[in-house]
Amino acid sequence: MPLIKNTFHRPASSSPDPAAALTSVSPDERWAAARAAGDDPVNLAALAQVLARESDTRVREAIFTALARIATPESALAVLPYLRSDDANIRTGALDALRAMPEAVKAHLSQALADADADVRLLACDLIRNIRDEDAPRWLCEFLEIEHVANVCAAAVDVLAEIGDVQALPTLWRCAARFPNDPFLAFAIKVAADRLRANAPGSRV
């Protein structure tokens, strides 16, 4: 039989100092350093600093993961600016990293929802989807009352349909009334309202 027998063998492993190796010229070393750095929140500042310069996709991914593992409001803050990146891959990477630390993101939500950049507000709505907080539907409702870009409203409506309840209905109707000429938003609101009503306790759907 050519299958190798199950005798034990185990190569030795080594663990270099992560913070120093984060700036190595070798992407492999930076990758290993970023991965190890996620074990300890003291590496937060070093990770945040190298994230700005990192050009290797794979290493950047490991830095995002390390920051997501640290999962403090500070590590979320280090990732948030990358939601503004011109590079779609970096934006997606940042969004995924933030999704992986929902509790840490909470502290920054109100600021992200008030951001001057509509894209950032839209992504912030999406982040609420993963946040388990009984107040989350209320944040979205308050946001919907004042948001002036229809697309961003549609994103908020979409998340609200998932995490909200019938108490959100008046907000939805007011939002629809503010954008009478936007058929897409009107449709999104109708779908959301139907869903919220269908999920209401005592509903017969």
Binding site: R35, G38, E61, F64, T65, A68, A100, N130
Partner: peptide, 9 residues
């Protein structure tokens, strides 16, 4: 999500 990322790496 966080454990999945670590597992993937």
């Amino acid at each position: 999500d966080s454990s999945r990322r670590v597992a993937a790496e």
